[in-house]
């Protein structure tokens, strides 16, 4: 829980800093995949493994996953159609049969139309999600954060000793 909270604070801080937009964008992509996938499956575990092993922003991933869970709920009919189309391709039947009888692979639940459909769509859309999130983060920093930093209220706050103390603390002990 501490790790998750820390990741959330880190996400807010990173969002308002000048660096780390790649980590944030990758986090958004992972969250997009997690949010679209309808159930806990092998591919979800693989995404979690990537999140923990690589420096991808977990807070961003969790927040994005939370957001996309609702979007995915609305997109289920589309996933179902795409999944059924993919699973019904005659030339792929022997491949699916082989995969179905392989160890571990059935745990991906690939034989479910919604899982298959969501996997196809998320894989295809992932690069766009990455680019879009990177663009939005940059835009947010330029248009909102910078403007906020120019306000008198923020300048007054920066001048307080409490802020100075926090700034020093963050430089020595923060991530």
């Amino acid at each position: 829980m501490t790790l998750i909270l820390k990741q959330f604070f880190s996400f807010i801080k990173l969002l308002h800093s000048d660096t780390g937009f790649i980590s944030l964008s990758l986090g958004c992509v992972c969250g997009f995949i997690l949010g679209m996938t309808p159930t806990l499956s092998l591919q979800s575990l693989l995404v979690f493994l990537l999140l923990f092993v690589f420096r991808i922003q977990i807070g961003a991933a969790l927040l994005t996953a939370f957001f996309f869970k609702f979007v995915a709920f609305l997109l289920d009919p589309a996933f179902d159609s795409v999944g059924q189309w993919a699973l019904d391709i005659p030339s792929m039947q022997s491949l699916y049969t082989s995969l179905y009888n392989m160890p571990l692979v059935p745990f991906t639940r690939f034989n479910n139309s919604i899982v298959m459909g969501s996997a196809i769509i998320t894989i295809l859309l992932s690069p766009f999600v990455y680019l879009l999130s990177a663009f939005l983060i940059k835009k947010y920093r330029e248009s909102i954060v910078e403007k906020f930093k120019e306000t008198k209220l923020f300048k007054a706050w920066k001048a307080t000793s409490l802020y100075q103390w926090y700034y020093k603390y963050d430089q020595f002990f923060g991530n």
């Binding site: 999944g83 059924q84 034989n111």
Partner: peptide, 21 residues
């Protein structure tokens, strides 16, 4: 039977021939 929890829509489960179970 391995079932997908109906968190969202259930979808359609395709059962391919079991050649090794």
């Amino acid at each position: 039977e391995p079932v997908i929890p109906p968190q969202r829509q259930v979808g359609k489960n395709y059962n391919f021939p079991i050649t090794k179970g």
